[in-house]
């Protein structure tokens, strides 16, 4: 007798548990408001990324085409993967001294792991992360970027 009651109980609880599960899924089916899909390519125009999002490394330039990089090479040293290469050049300043300025700041996006050590360690805040996250390219060579814009200058007042 006991076993028959248990048997019926099993059936009852089994069916109840299944119905509970069905209740959840069916309720979601009738609630289109719960849909969380991001309509990604369409929402590009009004897509707002979080301000700290580590999309890719950039070197902010102001409107006079000036950057903060003094080509000290700390970012290059602190990068764990060797994705940064700072190529300095020496120029003669107006008062006749030799001065080391940035020639090329090469950034290999394909090697970057977005650890943020370069941005954190930069003494002059010359580097930052942009929120651009669409990195797909057809040619690997395009992943090697030069961060300083052509003809850019060191911002006045940034100490060497």
């Amino acid at each position: 007798m006991r076993s028959i009651i248990n048997y019926l109980k099993d059936i009852f609880w089994g069916v109840m548990s299944l119905l509970k599960g069905l209740k959840v899924t069916a309720s979601y089916f009738w609630r289109p408001g719960a849909i969380v899909t991001e309509k990604y390519p369409e929402n590009r125009k009004y897509l707002v990324m979080f301000e700290r999002c580590k999309g890719e490394l950039i070197m902010p330039h102001n409107d006079k085409n000036e950057h903060n990089c003094i080509s000290c090479g700390i970012c290059q040293m602190s990068c764990p993967n060797g994705s940064i290469e700072v190529i300095p050049k020496t120029i003669d300043t107006e008062d006749g001294k030799k001065k080391r300025i940035l020639d090329k700041h090469i950034y290999r996006l394909g090697q970057c792991t977005f650890c943020g050590l370069c941005v954190k360690n930069c003494p002059t805040h010359a580097l930052a992360f942009s929120t651009k996250f669409e990195h797909a390219v057809f040619n690997k060579a395009l992943l090697i970027k030069v961060l300083n814009k052509p003809g850019s200058q060191l911002k006045k007042g940034v100490e060497q």
Binding site: F50, R52, K54, T113, G116
Partner: peptide
Amino acid sequence: FEETTGGRMIVS
């Protein structure tokens, strides 16, 4: 995570 650290899964 992303709002605070900038990374979603690999936060560093």
